[in-house]
Structure formats: C-alpha cells, structure tokens
Design a protein around this nucleic acid. Structure first.
Length: 587
RNA sequence: GCGCCCGUGGCUCAAUUGGAUAGAGCAUCGGACUUCGGAUCCGAGGGUUGGGGGUUCGAGUCCCUCCGGGCGCGCCA
C-alpha cells in the first residue's frame, strides 16, 4: 500500500515540477498512521515540510497536492483531505489496501527485508567482555541489543559483520592466571584477582586435563585460561541465540598492526614522549592520553585504536560499537585517534547502554564488581527455564524484556515476571498471540468437528488471494491490521536507521494487542467468528451448507498473512514463535 | 570544578528524529462478555513533558539558565 502511495506522490511531484513549482530534488515523504482510524488509512505532513522551500503557504500547497492526487489517472486514493495547518489525510482504495495480502504471502519470510544497500559495509562490535569470567546480566543487554541490531541492519539491506573483541592481552588476563594458580594451591586470590566459583572450577578442570600448565610459566597458563573462559562465554551466547562472525584477538594485533598504528600517529606528529611514557595529543577535542606506559606496556586505548583502524582497513565503511554508558567518556578519545590517523571519525558510532537491574522476589539484587556477587547470565537463564519448565523460555524472556525498553533507558529484569505464564508477562503475551493465530488455522485444517465441512470441500486455507475472496474482507478491523502489516517494512528500515531495536518489540506488542482486541470484536461486536462455532453447528444440522464459507476462506487467508508478518517480527527479535503453548501443570 | 546522559499521568515506559488534541501498559472507576487459547473486550478519569526564558508557522524534541538524579574525568579495562 505504502509503495503504491509513494508512487502516486512522486507522479504528482514531477507533474507539479513540470508546472513550474520549485520542489526540492528529494522530498521527505513521511507516511504515518493517523491518530484516529476515521481520518483515513494514512497521513502525511509533506506539505508542511516543503512549504518553506517552495515558498508557498503549507495549506495552499496541501490543496494543490490533494487535487492532483485525486486527479491521477489510476489514483490509489478513495479520498484525500486537507486538515489542520496542511496535513493530508489519505483514504486508500480497498483493492490497494488488500494488495498487502498478496505482497505478504508472496514474500513470506522475506517480507520486511529490504534490497541490498550498496556501498555500506557495517562492522558491529558488541559484548567484548573481558575473558576473565562468565557473562553477567549487564553483558546480556549488550549481547541482545547488538544481536538484534545486526538482524535489523541486515533486514534493512546493509552488509553487516559482527565481532567480539577479545582482550586476551595484558594485566587482567595475567591476574586470571594467577587467580587460578592460587586456587590450585589452595591460596586466596591475589590482590585485584578473581575469586568466583568459576576460578576454582577452572583450576580443578586444569588439574585433570593439563596439570603441567598449573606449575608452568604464566603465559601458557593465561592463554589456556582465556580459552576456557571464552569457551564458556560462547556457550552462554549460544544459549542466547547469538553467534558472532568473528572473535577478534587483541593479541593478534601484535603482528605489526599495533606498531604500525603508533608509527602512523608518530609521523603525523600526534605523539609526545613525557615522563617516560608516550602520549597521544588530543588537541582541541580531547586531553592527552597515554598510549605506552612508562613500564613499556601499551594501554588498552593503544590496541583499541589499532583495532578500529584495522576494521576500516578491512574495508568496513561504518563502525558501530555497543558499549556500557559508563564508557561514554571514551568516545571522543577514539574519534580523535581515528582522525589523527587520517580516518573518518564520523564513521565511528557508539550505542550506549544503560544499566540492567535484577529483581528477585520483588527486591533488587545489588550487583557490583567490588561486591563480587554478579549474577551470571547462565544462572538467570537456568532460573527461568526451570520455573517455566521450558528450555529456551529464559532466552526468550531475557531477549524480549531487554528489547522492550529503549537501550538508553535503564531496565529491570524481574525474574517473577519473566517466569510468569500469564498475560502479565509480555513475552508470554507476545508468544501466545502467535500460538492463537496458529490454533485457528490448525482447527480449520485438522479439527474433528469441522471434518464435514472439509469433506464437502468448502473449508480450506487458500494459497493465494483471489479477487472474489478479498472482497469479503470488509471489517474495519481487518483493514486496520493489514495497514499495520503494511507498515512493517518501513518500521524495519526506520528502526535500523535509528539504531532502535526496541521499536520492533513495541511494534510486536502493539500488534498483538490490536489482534486480541479486533479478534474479540470480530466475534462479540460483529458476530463474525472465522469458523462456525459449537452453537451454530448444534442449532442447525445443515450448517455445512448454510455457513458463508467464502468469508471464512477469506479470513483464513487474511490470518495466514497476518501470522506471517507477526512471525517475521518475532524472528527479528530472535524470539521463538511457538505454534502452541504447552500448558503448565497448574490446575 | 569540567564534560556527557537523563527528568513525560499514581507506577513502568513510548513518541516515526521539529509536526495535528503528548500516546500505550499496569493501577483506579464504570459497563459488556463468560464458546475459535488462558482475566477478555469497550469506555472514563488522570499531564503546565522538573522550573523559567529563547529560536519559528509549530518544541517533550533545538539553544540558554536554574533545580534534581546518573555516569565519566587513571601511566585501569
């Protein structure tokens, strides 16, 4: 529908240009849903947006557009009205709205995906948690937001690669090795070391598999520890449904790329030796930062800069990083560094994530590095899986509840809500909606009581829309839900551009709610259930002949399309779209 | 002290990047239903978008200022 409407506008734009109207080259045509359904199917503010450039009052411009749109030889509009200061309310012809059905069914799982955008190559880096311990809840947010952003950008047609940057170098990693060694010897962890249960487990595992490492030098032990911890992290990510294209080793930059980065900065005059250390000159944008400590070790900033330089050298045109909000001060530093290297600093962008709080039994579980009581992602997943009795429930709950918030807003993860098998739980509600859709289609195709109708050949789900059936879809609710389906591809593109994965979750919830509402109205208000129900069948022995099967087939077709779009949205969120909900044991 | 982010009905959050009368969900109140998947559906009340000033046809959104909160400002990562 929207593509047809856009076409019509562009025809009118060229027409008006030919008549001498000074319209800009590209006109921003924003199509939105009108506040109230009675106003029409779509609304736009183009007249207001371009009035200044054209040099005509918005209202007059809107009138001109209105007339021209309706006068088009094959106009898709049934009505166009000017409202307020110059808004256009558009009512689209039935057949154009209903064409959405055909588009959805023809494209199936690809509905909502955009054609490739040439030129852009995105490198999305996220999680990148130090391989010194298991992932905890704060990491999960970055993991989920990053993963869905990757799916979104791909759906929007961008080439995306995902990377996890592994800090397998430096003091932290050596501390891990020292901590494991201490645990092996039954000693307390060293100053600033790690003391979680996983350290003891790691020590024990190594005792069995590679005892020589525990008594050997730090280097090989550290390497092995990182390998083991990273293995655990990858298993956790796997449980979350997240798979990286690459785990990029910080240490691998030691093959010359690190030194080359420093040389490039030096030859550009951006370095300064002072107090036995090597500083990067921040210039106007940032204060001076240390690259090489007086101890001779390189800082994290040095290798991170080399890493980001490498990303660009590999041909990526856009670098998107997902960071915790506490790292925001780091952004100007990185950008200044890239620019000093002669690289485009504006290619680098960062999504900052706010905190995640964990609620257990209604109380906040305080977590902190100093407290050493981080709840791991695995523990959260286990708890929800166990409480619900469904493996995978934890993954879906964690993903959905994280995505049901803007990333720049703090989120609370309530174990009770996440585990609830009721509509109080947004995840459950979202998934049950899909199961309901499936259930009706399943009843139509398999239920015992409708067998006579199927045998008579009147009850089946058509494969493709045909004009006779489509005419049967006359309820405003059916039209409104199709309009929501029609908006989905644009939602994908806008959410991708805004780097706002949460919009997909909001869209899904609103869609689910609209479906529940309209669905109930179809039976209660319109007295128009899709399938003949018990009362009808019992009251009239000839119900198979009396029932309006064309309308039923039309609605089943409609439902198939609606379910397809909804399933595509859930797929984008990485949440399962179950065909049925297994009842829990409660009475 | 300097810098960044945030402040939206009682609560939790949106708001298509400057567009119409700021929207949902909980909660409260009223009504309907109790058969296609689970307390569902319809409606009502509730707001000076922290305060003030400015920019323009138009501001929750941009600028200034004050108040309140979070974070950062290390030869840590």
């Amino acid at each position: 529908m929207r593509s047809r409407v856009r076409e019509a506008f562009h025809e009118v734009f060229t027409q008006l240009r030919a008549e001498g109207l000074d319209l800009p080259e590209s006109v921003p045509l924003v199509l939105e849903k009108p506040r109230r359904a009675e106003l029409g199917d779509l609304a736009t503010n183009v007249a207001l947006a371009v009035a200044k450039a054209v040099g005509r009052p918005p209202r007059a411009l809107a009138e001109a557009l209105c007339g021209a749109l309706l006068a088009l030889p094959d106009t898709p509009f049934a009505a166009v009205e000017v409202a307020g200061p110059g808004f256009l309310n558009l009512r689209v012809k039935d057949r154009v709205v209903l064409a959405v059905l055909g588009e959805v069914l023809a494209q199936g799982e690809r509905y909502g995906q955009h054609p490739p955008v040439p030129g852009e190559r995105v490198l999305l880096e996220f999680v990148s948690a130090n391989p010194t311990g298991p992932l905890h809840l704060a990491h999960a947010r970055g993991a989920v937001v990053g993963d869905v952003l990757a799916r979104l950008l791909r759906a929007a047609g961008l080439a995306v690669e995902t990377e996890y940057y592994v800090n397998d170098l430096g003091a932290q990693v050596l501390k891990l090795a020292a901590s494991v060694r201490a645990a092996h010897l039954g000693e307390p962890p060293p100053e600033g070391g790690y003391g979680g249960a996983y350290v003891a487990e790691l020590a024990q595992a190594l005792r069995a598999s590679a005892p020589a490492l525990l008594d050997g030098p730090d280097g090989p032990l550290a390497e092995r520890c990182v390998e083991e911890v990273l293995g655990g992290i990858r298993r956790t990510l796997d449980r979350l449904g997240i798979h990286f294209a690459r785990f990029f080793s910080e240490r691998s930059l030691g093959d010359g790329r690190l030194e080359a980065t420093l040389d490039a900065l030096a030859s550009g005059g951006h370095l300064e030796a002072r107090d036995g250390a090597l500083f990067f000159r921040g210039g106007d944008t940032d204060k001076d930062r240390v690259l090489r400590k007086s101890s001779g070790d390189l800082t994290y900033f040095a290798s991170d800069l080399a890493y980001h330089r490498d990303k660009l050298a590999r041909g990526h045109t856009r670098l998107v990083d997902v960071w915790g909000a506490d790292h925001h001060g780091y952004i100007p530093r990185m950008r200044a560094g890239l620019e000093a290297l002669g690289l485009p600093g504006e290619a680098f962008e960062v999504l900052l994530l706010q905190m995640v709080k964990l609620l257990k039994d209604g109380k906040e579980v305080r977590m902190g590095k100093r407290l050493g009581n981080f709840i791991t992602v695995d523990e959260v997943l286990d708890e929800v899986d166990e409480a619900t009795g469904h493996p995978g429930a934890g993954r879906d709950a964690l993903r959905f509840l994280i995505l049901a918030r803007s990333h720049e807003s703090p989120v609370e993860f309530d174990l009770a809500v996440a585990s609830a098998q009721s509509v109080e739980n947004p995840v459950f509600y979202a998934q049950m909606t899909h199961a309901r859709m499936c259930s009706i289609l399943h009843r139509a195709e398999h239920s015992e009581e409708l067998l006579p109708a199927r045998e008579a050949g009147v009850l089946y789900v058509p494969d493709a829309p045909d004009p006779v059936l489509v005419e049967k879809l006359t309820l405003p609710e059916e039209r409104a839900i199709l309009a929501a389906c029609d908006a989905f591809p644009e939602l994908v593109r806008e959410a991708a551009e805004a780097r706002a994965p949460h919009r997909v979750a909001f869209w899904a919830l609103e869609f689910a709610q609209g479906f529940a509402s309209y669905f109930t109205r179809m039976q209660r208000v319109h007295d128009a259930p899709i399938l003949p129900q018990k009362g009808v069948r019992e009251a009239d022995p000839g119900w198979v002949r009396a029932w309006d099967w064309e309308t039923t087939r039309a609605r089943l077709l409609w439902l198939r399309a609606v379910r397809q779009v909804y399933a595509n949205a859930l797929a984008l969120l990485g949440v399962e779209a179950p065909t049925r909900m297994t009842r829990s044991a409660e009475p």
